[in-house]
Structure formats: structure tokens, C-alpha cells
């Protein structure tokens, strides 16, 4: 698959997640500008829905896609059951020790250097950051 195709399909998947059946009923006021073949729609839907049941999945579904979701689709590797309870964040001293490292603080960079951190590495924009405040 070309990068352009992948991006177009990913955009359609993102578009679908913005539509839910709530109080809007069938208010499809932002139609998908690039309709896709049925089999592509099904493949994307399988990827987007794999292992992601909503709390009220009986009421919620995408408006765009009629294709049945394959319930046997592999949702990826399982995380070991004890992974959540493992002491994953520990206090530790790196560099001059005892320093609370803040992003942007030179001491934070020193700490990161100690573990070969690379601030220039790309493609890491996952995990939502803390939302901003609205300053007066």
C-alpha cells in the first residue's frame, strides 16, 4: 500500500470515530468526502474496532459503516496480567541525584543524557499530553 493510500484510509478511520449515535440520531452533516469501496471500509473498520468495545456498544456504532466486524480479529498481543501491578515507576537518581527534572530544564537534559535519550527522535506523538489551561 502506498503512503498516500494509507494516509487516506487512516483519515477515513479518524473521521468515523467522530460519529456516534447519541442524541444526534442520524445527523450525518459532515459526509465522508472520499467514499471507499466496501471491502476497504470493512478492513478499516476491523482495524479500528479490534478489541475496542464501547461500554454501551449495543447503542453506539459508526454511522458510515455497515460492514460486520469480525469478532475473531486478533486484537494484538496480550499484556501480561501482572504488568499493571508491577512497580513500573520508581524513584531513582540519575546524574547529580535528587533533582526533579522538568522538560526544558537543563537538568532534565542531563538526566536524559544519562540514559541515552534523544530529543530529536521523531514519530513519538502518542499519548495525549495534559490539556492546556485557559489563561485569563
Amino acid at each position: 500500500m502506498t503512503r498516500a493510500d494509507a494516509q487516506a484510509r487512516a483519515l477515513r478511520a479518524a473521521s468515523r470515530v467522530t460519529f456516534t449515535l447519541g442524541l444526534f440520531g442520524c445527523a450525518e452533516d459532515v459526509p465522508d468526502p472520499t467514499p471507499e469501496p466496501a471491502e476497504e471500509a470493512q478492513a478499516d473498520e476491523q482495524a479500528a474496532d479490534a478489541g475496542a468495545p464501547e461500554a454501551d456498544a449495543g447503542e453506539q456504532r459508526d454511522l458510515f459503516v455497515d460492514a460486520a466486524v469480525d469478532p475473531t480479529l486478533d486484537a494484538g498481543p496480550a499484556v501480561p496480567p501482572d504488568a499493571e501491578t508491577a512497580p513500573v515507576v520508581a524513584d531513582a537518581e540519575v546524574g547529580d541525584g535528587g533533582v526533579v527534572c522538568e522538560i526544558g530544564d537543563p537538568e532534565y537534559a542531563a538526566c536524559c543524557d544519562a540514559v541515552n535519550w534523544d530529543f530529536d527522535a521523531g514519530c513519538m506523538a502518542w499519548g495525549p499530553p495534559v490539556p492546556p489551561a485557559l489563561l485569563a
Binding site: R3, Q7, A10, L11, A13, A14, A52, A75, G76, W126
Partner: peptide, 26 residues
């Protein structure tokens, strides 16, 4: 994130790494 991970997953060949992306994307 859905768009970025989705595109990356589609560009990636099938295999364990794509399985990781599938789980996260879901």
C-alpha cells in the same frame, strides 16, 4: 493519534509489530 497510528499500521507489513499497533489503535 487514530490517524497517525492507523496510517503507520497500514504501511507496516503483517507481523508482531503490526499486532502491537493493532492493539494500541483499537
Amino acid at each position: 493519534a487514530v490517524a497517525l497510528i492507523g496510517a503507520e499500521r497500514l504501511e507496516m507489513p503483517a507481523g508482531p509489530l503490526q499486532d502491537v499497533l493493532t492493539r494500541i489503535l483499537a
